[in-house]
Nucleic acid binder design. Sequence first.
RNA 1: GGAGUCGUAGUUCAGUUUGGUUAGAACGCCUGACUGUCACUCAGGAGGUCGCGAGUUCGAGUCUCGUCGAUUCCGCCA
Length: 594
Amino acid sequence: MLFKKRTHTCGDLRSANLNEKVTLNGWISGKRDLGGLLFIDLRDRYGITQLKIDPDNKACYDTAVKLGQEFVVSASGIVIKRESINKNIPTGEIEILVEELDVLNESEIPPFVIEEEIKATDELRLKYRYLDIRRKSIADNLILRSRVSQIVHRYFEKHNFIEVETPMLMKSTPEGARDYLVPSRVHKGKFYALPQSPQLYKQILMVSGMDRYVQICKCFRDEDLRADRQPEFTQIDFEMSFVTQDDVFEILEGMFGEIWKEIKGVSLPEKFRRMTYDEAINSYGSDKPDLRITGEMKIENISGIAGGSEFKVFQETLNSGGIIAGIKLSGKEVTRKTVDSLTEFVKKHGFGGLGYLKFNAGGNVQSPVAKFLSAEITDNIKNAFSAADGDTVFILSGEKMKVLTALGQMRLKLAEDFKLTDESKYEFLWVTDFPLFHYDHDEKRFFAEHHVFTMPKDEYLKFLDSRDPAEVESIRANCYDLVLNGHEITSGSIRIHKPDIQKKVFDIIGLTDEEAKMKFGFILDAFRYGAPPHGGAAVGYDRVIAILAGLKSITDTIAFPKTLKASSLMDECPGEVSQEQLDELAIQIVKKEA
RNA sequence: GGAGUCGUAGUUCAGUUUGGUUAGAACGCCUGACUGUCACUCAGGAGGUCGCGAGUUCGAGUCUCGUCGAUUCCGCCA
């Protein structure tokens, strides 16, 4: 079908184009019929341009009055100056006096009005995602995503990385997240798995001597979903040979630096701040602390100070190996309501109650536990937190990790309730020295915290032969996360490349040689032929885009996202398949009993 | 797997607490009027399986149970 092609987009024309004869193609975004004069807003992804239809041009006018929302048209005419200027849009000084108007396609009445302040629910927007993407904010997210992608490709190429595509159909490995499985027709009863990440392939590429590998790739995890978790998501996955942790950091610091500079016009520090896992847990009660909070609100362990008190709860805690710790809220009025809501919050975390010390003006201390604490102890607590009059210190006592994580979550809650987070900041933080193992008391065995190929730090290699839970759990790994504003956006490690160390790690998690061979045989084979020291990381691409776009959820960074139940409302997947397809795969559906 | 919230016109919601006349509003849609609008304005109109299924009741949008879907959180996500 022939149609008059556009000479400009709907975002192009300005006063400089006055008197030019132009053609625009686009969607009808609005129509204002004044009874004679008729104005149309024509939209494409570049912007909106106003069309003026004069009733004297009868053919044109007759077509125009019949136009509905989202009709696709081609309009030709002269760029003229508007009588009244619209300062809200970039093309607001001009309009097109239309001479020729063709309907390229009609549209049914859309199920929701396509406007920036969308009223439709997520459910409806996902079902008609193609209409949702016509909205500027969603389109802009996809454009942003595309721009970042270009920056990333350019950056890694500049640093001598090779892009290698790795298989989407691979072997299922039982460690880690649940795999999405794909049945094999040729090998009946056997299954491929979709990659949770290209981890093993990229390590093998290091053995191959590719030296520097990168890929922006889709990954799949069949786990329950959240606002920031989609069943399929995207990683910037990379691996480097002959490197230490610092080399990996440098690459990512450079990459994020370029992204932020180009997208946000913000210069990030050349080196990001670093913190060990232990420091993060002890001071922020989290392995991904949000450092945008005013005054940082560090957790202080006051076991030593408060332990000297008569307070029975504190005594019992310390006797059973627990800790007493707290956080300070600076200069905010703490009401009865605040305390009640926080108490309810900590009770959900399994605490009997919440202690607090309110340092009022004039040296008066308001506290339900004050009567158990001497003036000296109260003073010492005040000093430990560098508390001033008007500050409140909240205190919890109990098992160490429970206290720290509860205080960590309270820190975030207080920051939210009292608006202590500087939303304009970008706080990047390396969290390093993660534990290599944790002991599972139910299953009575050790598990790898990151993955089984993570290299222990040199000074802990001696504990690889120990089976004492405390010693084994003390082993720290060459394993690191990059945290941005409290979100984990990157995770990686230096890998084990020596078979003897690998064997010891397998031993600790109770993997026999035989099992190891069955699960990881191909990579262990590869490692026998000269594996270089190597390490890398994977960046959670969707989360990075969400933060750049100022979104809470990653859903709108993805063109066609899935719901929390992993279905796509637009194309209605997953769907049933025919009996023939099942027969070919030798698969039988077991109906759930009623 | 568990807990919470939501589901009423094309859309967003009110109505559910305390069951009771013809289920309302706004936007959208349709018709008409209007020659400088840009959230055009004005007048009129159409539009409902109250998610679905059972139950309680003289009577259910409203109460109970189940189910489906969306969403938030916990578990889970090396």
